[in-house]
Structure formats: structure tokens, C-alpha cells
Computed example of a mutant assay.
Amino acid sequence: MAPQLRVFVPPHPLIQHWLGVSRDADTPSTLFRSAMTELGRWLTYEAVRDWLPTLETTVETPLASCPATFINPEVPVVIVPILRAGLALMEGAQSLLPLASIYHIGFVRDEETLEPTCYLNKLPASFDPQTRVLISEPMLATGGTIMAMMKELTARGADPSMVRIISVVTAPAALQKLADAYPELNIYAATIDEGLNSQGFIVPGLGDAGDRTFGT
């Protein structure tokens, strides 16, 4: 059976609560950052459920031996926040994956053409094919930035089936592009919105996640 893009919208009340807080135009920047951190935490929790490699072993409790399961430290785990808005989700993700390596990449979108330009790339020269890569990107709108991100990752040997994306608000345009190009991907989002406006912003969305996070 051919792979098919999987988009998960976890029905978790905490995810829905913090989504509501982040959507509200009256939410101040400090509270918006808290909402992004919490969404990063809970979306990551859902994303790593069957994704992290584990080891089966035995430990000694104070009373007896018993089976134990640990995360395999020999398999690399990487978090890549897409600058700058992706930093908003990273704190929550990193709290659950404290040993993960963090690599930064930055894109800026031309507001006329809607095409992304990479202005910072700190990705390694290559990835082990078994590397687990978690991308944090609050908005998947036109799909231009996330497609450019995936091109950079796969050019360095990352396996799309080992990549997971956490995003707060997604739109069908971006999801369709990803489905066509990288059907092995798994995406964890707080919601899928109805579409985009003429400027390429998600509607109803939550505005500019980067500006609201950093108060600019």
C-alpha cells in the first residue's frame, strides 16, 4: 500500500484550550507565548507517542527484578524550529526531549510572491537515515516554507518517514503540497482551518505567530 500523509488533530482539551487562547486577538504577547509553549508541549507529547526508539531491559527495584523500557539514546533525535515563529513551540517540545539536538533554519516570505527565502541554515551536512526529526512551525499556510524545509532535510539524507511536524494552525493548501511530495510524513496540529485569504494568511487563523510571540 502506498504511503499517505497522516494529519493528526488530537482531541485533547488542553490543546483546544490553548488554541483558543492563541486565536484570541485580545491575548497579550506574554500569554500568547505561554499558549505557544503549552501547544508545543502537548503536540510533541502526541507526536512522539509511537516514534521514539526504545530499549527493553531489566532493572532492580528495592524488592525485585522487573522489566523496564527506556528511550534508546543511540538513535539521534533532532528538533528543528523554523525561525522565527518556530521558536515559540520549541520550548515546550524541548521540555519533553531534553537530550535532542537543536538545529536552526530561518526563512522569510516575500509578501508579494509568497515565496520563501532562506536567510539562515545551521543544519548539519548530513543526517543518519534513522534520525528522528521534529519540525516546529506554528503555521502551515501556503506550504512554501515547509516545502523548502523538507527539501533541505531530504538533501541531507533525512528520511521523511522519520520526520514529524508540529503545527498550531494548518490550511489545506500546505497539506496538499506535503501530501503530494512527502506522503510518508506525519503532522500533528491543533486544527485545520478552512483556507487562506488573498495575502496567503490562514483564515480564521491566529494572525502572525512570530509578531505575536515576540511583541513586534
Rank of each mutant, 00 (worst) to 15 (best):
residue 74 E to L: 15
residue 106 G to K: 00
residue 99 L to V: 11
residue 194 E to R: 15
residue 142 T to Q: 08
residue 83 L to V: 05
residue 65 S to D: 11
residue 214 F to V: 05
residue 209 A to I: 08
residue 19 L to E: 02
residue 52 L to N: 03
residue 140 L to V: 10
residue 41 R to S: 07
residue 152 E to W: 07
residue 73 P to T: 08
residue 205 G to I: 01
residue 20 G to K: 12
residue 23 R to W: 05
residue 39 L to F: 01
residue 43 L to E: 03
residue 6 R to S: 14
residue 134 L to I: 13
residue 177 K to R: 15
residue 142 T to I: 13
residue 12 H to N: 11
residue 215 G to N: 14
residue 140 L to I: 14
residue 37 T to S: 11
residue 154 T to F: 03
residue 26 D to A: 15
residue 19 L to T: 00
residue 2 A to Q: 13
residue 40 G to M: 09
residue 11 P to T: 05
residue 15 I to L: 10
residue 74 E to V: 09
residue 47 A to V: 04
residue 114 L to A: 08
residue 121 N to M: 03
residue 78 V to G: 04
residue 59 V to F: 12
residue 167 S to N: 12
residue 64 A to P: 02
residue 156 R to V: 06
residue 49 R to P: 03
residue 32 F to M: 06
residue 106 G to Q: 00
residue 88 A to D: 10
residue 161 S to E: 08
residue 34 S to R: 15
residue 85 A to M: 03
residue 95 S to M: 12
residue 51 W to R: 13
residue 76 P to G: 08
residue 34 S to N: 14
residue 205 G to M: 01
residue 131 T to W: 04
residue 190 A to R: 00
residue 201 F to C: 02
residue 71 I to Y: 12
residue 189 A to N: 04
residue 210 G to F: 07
residue 204 P to R: 03
residue 102 I to R: 01
residue 127 F to Q: 04
residue 193 D to E: 08
residue 94 Q to E: 11
residue 32 F to C: 07
residue 6 R to Y: 05
residue 117 T to W: 09
residue 160 P to Q: 02
residue 141 A to H: 06
residue 17 H to W: 06
residue 91 E to L: 13
residue 25 A to L: 13
residue 91 E to N: 13
residue 41 R to D: 00
residue 209 A to F: 08
residue 89 L to K: 01
residue 153 L to R: 00
residue 64 A to I: 10
residue 136 S to H: 06
residue 22 S to F: 11
residue 65 S to K: 15
residue 154 T to D: 00
residue 151 K to F: 04
residue 162 M to P: 02
residue 16 Q to Y: 08
residue 209 A to S: 07
residue 137 E to C: 11
residue 2 A to H: 13
residue 23 R to G: 10
residue 193 D to H: 06
residue 4 Q to R: 14
residue 36 M to L: 13
residue 147 M to P: 02
residue 132 R to T: 06
residue 190 A to H: 02
residue 138 P to N: 05
residue 161 S to T: 07
residue 187 I to W: 10
residue 119 Y to G: 00
residue 199 Q to V: 02
residue 213 T to F: 13
residue 119 Y to T: 00
